[in-house]
């Protein structure tokens, strides 16, 4: 059992162990969607929301269904299925109760199913042996950390639109390098606290 306090896990997953800047997860949608701040914020919120709930549901499924029945070798398929089902359910729910929100957020929801940050957060939760509260804290923190990174990037990309970038470096090349610089600044937080 991991004995780190929930607050420490929460803060660490935003700053020192940021899921995107330190564990490289969720980069595909990060590169594609970070071109506008508004969409980046919407996707960030959606990812945070889904991450909190899928961490919680997958925790229950893993420790109360898969482990007792010795089915943990199937865990990857089950995790993916839970994430996909949750996103599908969420989509239907939002569409039914808040069409406005559905139109601003709806198109991003299918993207989330294949966002490896969500699946990665669940895997880290199992590997680091978090308990239920820690898992939820970690999911929430990781989601916020991912949202923070993508919003930062969207802001920087807006500025970069005015700079002269070599032809071959445009697009993914410069995004990766700038992300590297952001990651470097986040390493500065490491002294604050670090957890595994």
């Amino acid at each position: 059992m991991n004995t780190t306090s929930v607050l420490a896990i929460f803060i660490a997953s935003i700053f020192t162990n940021n899921i995107l800047l330190a564990s490289f997860l969720g980069l595909c949608s990060f590169i594609v969607v970070s071109n506008r701040i508004e969409t980046a914020i919407s996707l960030g919120i959606a990812v945070t929301f889904v991450m909190v709930f899928t961490s919680a549901i997958n925790y229950i499924v893993y420790y109360y269904i898969l482990i007792p029945f010795k089915l943990d070798f199937l865990s990857y398929v089950v995790f993916i299925a839970v994430i996909a089902a949750f996103v599908q359910f969420l989509e239907m729910f939002i569409e039914r109760f808040s069409p406005a929100l559905y139109y601003s957020l709806g198109i991003f929801l299918p993207l989330i199913t294949v966002n490896c940050a969500i699946f990665g957060a669940v895997l880290f939760m199992v590997i680091r042996k978090y308990d239920f509260i820690q898992s939820v804290g970690f999911g929430f923190g990781s989601g916020l950390g991912w949202a923070l990174a993508i919003v930062l990037m969207a802001g920087l990309r807006k500025k970069m639109g005015y700079s002269k970038i070599p032809e071959a470096l445009k697009g993914p090349g410069i995004i990766l390098i700038v992300t590297g610089v952001i990651a470097m600044t986040f390493i500065g937080f490491t002294g604050m606290l670090s957890t595994q």
């Binding site: 490289f24 470096l169 090349g173 410069i174 390098i177 990651a183 390493i187």
Partner: peptide, 25 residues
């Protein structure tokens, strides 16, 4: 050590894409 940490990974990856794109261009 920077090259073992995350920033090194991002920057090396970005540079590699730059080089390959430049060659292709």
């Amino acid at each position: 050590i920077l090259f073992l940490l995350a920033p090194g990974a991002f920057i090396t990856g970005g540079l590699l894409i730059w080089v390959i794109n430049a060659i292709n261009l």
